[in-house]
Write a protein that binds this DNA or RNA. Sequence first.
DNA 1: CACCATGTTCCTTG
DNA 2: CCAAGGAACATGGT
Length: 284
Amino acid sequence: MPELPEVEVLVRHLEPLLRGQVIRGVDVRRPRVLRPSSETELRRALVGSVFVNLNRRGKYLLFTLRRAGSRKTFPLLGHLGMTGRMYLLPANAALPKHAAVVLRFARSQLVFEDTRYFGRLTLDTSAVSALGPEPLDERFTAHDLRNALRRPGQSLKVKLLDQSLVAGLGNIYASEALFRARLSPRRRADQLSPKQAQRLWRSLRQVLREAIAWGSTVRLHWGPADGRNNLFYYGAAEGESGYAHERLRVYDRAGQPCLRCRTAIRRIVQGARSTYYCPRCQRC
DNA sequence: CACCATGTTCCTTG
DNA sequence: CCAAGGAACATGGT
């Protein structure tokens, strides 16, 4: 469930459900996702603690908890990796095949499910300090973006995925933002004019904001993965049939006509990952 | 069997 | 020392 918008929507959804919940038990089925925390470490910190709040930073979930009878709070860091999901189930519900960690409450349980186990749930929050600015923060300006892209010379697309420059963009929204800004993903990042940087800045924020707005209004499927792709990137809402990629204008549309000029969308590989773009609209 | 997949980190190569 | 590229992690879909 990864990029920034999905995490944001998940955080908004989960926060009111978690606040005040007391953790009675911790069930670790895949210790790998705790890295570098250990199972005993996590259990000792969490059992008896209560959820205070939940925030997002980049693609990370930041839980704040408090030990019973204490005023001091401590953080718990989550990351969904490529295939992670988090949701509440009734206390006695059966767990999915790829449940990685389960936090048990009196009447419900928080399930962290992750088929590929690339995600994390850990007491180590150090990764957050390496993140660049929040793209939707009002303090993040077009000038900041231009400076971030300035340093070495690399393609725009690859740079946008660098979480230390801007936090939260992933492979899908990086392509989408470049399409809207009409900038080539292959273009060197370090020589954008102020005007182009401004365009990219606006596009990037627009793409992320629209995705959050969309995910907030549609009824999403919060339960266990049912074998299909439940990402809201693809417009898969509960009770909806079909998976039209309507929301995405270029991603995964190789060979299809550009929505702006009808030229065939092209797929290239950059940094070992797929990039989609319109060779006509997105010139250097 | 082949290739692809929303992410991050570590290692090698130049 | 730095940047770029690749592999690894692990599972599933087409």
